[in-house]
């Protein structure tokens, strides 16, 4: 089974660094990058540009909060509202360490919340642990 990672990230630097971190940590799964909330929704619900894609949920979603068009928390809210997407593991990965954002994320059913570290090594560690946990260790309901 294909274990796709959906990376929802509008910042090209963060995208490049994240992709590099996956690579360096030997996480070789296919990574789909959505650059705003709308694109993420389209991918998840196979709409718009993704209307022809095979209906398979990603293994994990790395979701930024501050996104153009539709923000990350809205994306989370929507995908938790539909049965088909309600169980996809979602890791909030954001610059924000606002308590409100954190609490809202968990209330909306985020599985994990990681603050993007400025320091690359910590960021690499975070991505590595993320990959290990959600892609390798975590058993999802079939």
């Amino acid at each position: 089974m294909k274990k796709t990672i959906l990376l929802v990230e509008d910042n090209p630097n963060d995208e490049a660094l994240t992709l590099r971190a996956f690579e360096k940590n030997n996480i070789l799964n296919e990574v789909v990058v959505a650059r705003d909330g709308q694109e993420a929704i389209d991918f998840l619900f196979c709409e718009g540009d993704y209307s022809t894609r095979e209906k398979i949920n990603p293994q994990v979603i790395l979701l930024d909060i501050n996104l153009p068009k539709i923000d990350g928390l809205d994306v989370l809210r929507r995908l938790r509202a539909y049965e088909a997407t309600s169980l996809i593991p979602v890791v909030i990965m954001t610059t924000s360490d606002e308590q409100n954002d954190l609490i809202t994320s968990y209330q909306l059913g985020a599985n994990s919340y990681i603050r993007k570290p400025v320091e690359l090594n910590s960021f690499m560690d975070a991505v590595k642990q993320l990959g290990m946990y959600w892609l390798v260790l975590n058993e999802q309901p079939k």
């Binding site: 963060d14 660094l17 924000s96 400025v118 690359l120």
Partner: peptide, 21 residues
């Protein structure tokens, strides 16, 4: 402050990140 923390940190991460790279 909220947006400053976000908007300033993102480019900072880029500078720091790519220096590491």
């Amino acid at each position: 402050c909220y947006s400053v923390s976000h908007d300033l940190r993102a480019p900072l991460r880029g500078i720091s990140g790519f220096s590491d790279v």
